[in-house]
Amino acid sequence: MSEFRWAGKVALVTGGNSGIGAAITRRLLELGLIVVVLDRNIDDLQELATKDEVYGRLYPRICDLRHENDVLETFRWIETCLGGVDVLVNNAGITGHNSLVEGSPDEWRHLLEVNVVALCLCTKEAVASMRRRNIKDGHIFNLSSTLAHTIHPYGPLHFYTATKYAVSALTEGVRQELRETKARIRVTSISPGLVKSNIFKSCLGADVHDAVYKKPSLNPSDVASAIEYALNSPTHVQVNEIIIKPMELLA
């Protein structure tokens, strides 16, 4: 393969310490990008950052995306130390514990802050960074879900589903706004089906985790491949959305 056109560019990945975010981080590093990763826990990333093949190109940073100042400070640091953001991957997301009729405003606010508000704030700051430098090939990825296209009967997923519907609307809204200003920034939504990760174990418990993964599922690397595909597409091609499902669930 000839030198990848994003080599040396700066990517920001939210929620990148494990699961899908970690797979995306590794793929971007393989493609030659400099990667800043935000997460509340960066233990795994700090170990990876010491490896010779990525040393000096991976910057893990502890960040609570619910705190606006944490996010803004990260973007200021990137501008000062790395020049600015060329690729943004809004990957961070959480699910709730309770159904709508048993849930609490605190839980709903938490989901909205991480899944929706933080995504909007990171997008706003990334677009501002790209515009300041008048870049010609920026890219924003929003990690959504097949749940943004359906309503699953499992109650604890319903508010999470609502946040992913919001992500779909926000993705298209940002795309339209960027098109109106003729910005050379592409926006892609990635909507995977069930992916092997610890999100169900951390949010809903081991029993739910075990029950869910009796079904066919994707690997985090499958989602990373979708990111790579969209990045590799010609600059005149806008990949609006990629929906990925395990083969057995295609019916």
Rank of each mutant, 00 (worst) to 15 (best):
R61C: 05
L170Q: 08
R5N: 00
A251C: 03
T14D: 08
T25C: 12
C122I: 06
I199P: 00
L157C: 09
E228L: 11
G56T: 09
E47I: 12
D39Y: 04
T95L: 15
N69C: 08
Y165D: 02
I140V: 13
D52Q: 13
P60Y: 03
C120S: 12
E107T: 04
L82C: 09
C120K: 04
P234M: 09
G205P: 09
W77Q: 09
T14N: 07
M1I: 06
S217I: 01
Y165L: 11
E79A: 12
L249H: 10
A166E: 00
R5L: 04
A169N: 03
G32F: 10
A49D: 06
D44R: 11
A7F: 02
K201L: 14
P105E: 12
E241T: 09
F4H: 12
R133W: 02
L119V: 15
S221D: 13
F4I: 02
T188A: 05
A211H: 10
A118D: 08
N134M: 07
N115D: 15
V127A: 02
G16E: 05
Q238L: 14
H158D: 01
H139R: 09
V237H: 14
N17H: 02
E180A: 13
L12A: 06
A169P: 00
V10Q: 07
L82N: 08
A251D: 13
E248V: 02
R131E: 14
V37E: 04
N240C: 05
V35N: 09
D52K: 14
H97D: 12
R61Q: 08
L218Y: 06
L121D: 01
D137T: 00
I242K: 00
T163N: 03
S197M: 11
A92P: 11
R66L: 08
L12G: 03
L218C: 01
C203E: 15
K214D: 06
T123N: 03
E113Y: 01
D86I: 10
S197Y: 08
R186P: 02
L31W: 04
L58F: 10
K9R: 15
V85K: 02
S145R: 05
L147V: 15
A166I: 05
L112N: 12
H149E: 13
R61F: 05
K245F: 00
E30W: 01
